[in-house]
């Protein structure tokens, strides 16, 4: 193997390790965000694949102006939002239906699953803009400036959308809403 080929092979290994490690580190966060952005459970894997395809394509463009995490969140939200726009008009997952009158199991595992399902049903009551801000602020606990950078919006808009989202969620909780149509 010539020197140039050896260098190319080394570079290939570095790239492979780099991408594999990004996947290992950020897959859980991407996965959770994709789900919280309204992707149906059975479609999450496909959307996560798409997110990492974009990351693979664009990793060379990452310039470190934002943190890697912020950069990945931004890609995740764009891909998830695009996916949801395409799918949402056709179907809404019945799994997410929230029936406030349904009995709550005392079993911790079952209860956790029920709460997660109901959380997603509540999130479904928000539009995509408010949902994105709410998920990043309240669930991922990112700062306002970070969210503004991820979503490409002004800081004031972040706070405005968050306020509206919280108001909407409060109202849904008070009225027992958030029920998806079967």
């Amino acid at each position: 193997m010539g020197e140039a080929q050896a260098h190319a092979a080394d570079a290939g290994m570095i790239r492979r390790a780099q991408f594999a490690d990004i996947y290992a580190t950020y897959c859980p966060y991407v996965w959770r965000c994709v789900r919280r952005m309204g992707t149906a459970p059975e479609q999450v894997e496909d959307v996560v694949q798409d997110v990492f395809l974009v990351i693979s394509e664009r990793i060379h463009a990452f310039e470190g102006r934002a943190s890697l995490k912020t950069w990945i969140y931004a890609i995740t939200f764009r891909v998830a939002a695009e996916h949801r726009r395409k799918r949402h008009r056709n179907e809404r997952s019945k799994v997410l239906a929230w029936d406030p009158s349904a009995p709550v199991s005392a079993d911790e595992e079952v209860l956790a699953r029920q709460l997660a399902d109901r959380l997603h049903a509540l999130l479904d009551t928000l539009d995509m803009d408010q949902r994105a801000v709410f998920v990043l602020a309240e669930l991922e606990q990112l700062s306002g400036p970070e969210i503004a950078e991820i979503l490409g919006i002004k800081l004031n808009t972040v706070y405005s959308r968050l306020r509206l989202a919280r108001r909407r969620m409060d109202r849904e909780l008070a009225t027992g809403g958030g029920r998806s149509s079967p």
């Binding site: 570079a11 790239r15 897959c27 894997e45 395809l53 693979s56 394509e57 956790a112 997660a116």
Partner: peptide
């Protein structure tokens, strides 16, 4: 509660997705 209960991917699911990604793309194109 949501912060605590929302699901994380299982290891088999993560491995499955990684395998699919490997098949779909060239890892780290120059």
């Amino acid at each position: 509660r949501a912060r605590q209960v929302d699901a994380w991917p299982s290891m088999p699911a993560r491995a499955r997705v990684w395998s699919a990604i490997e098949r779909r793309i060239a890892v780290g194109p120059p």
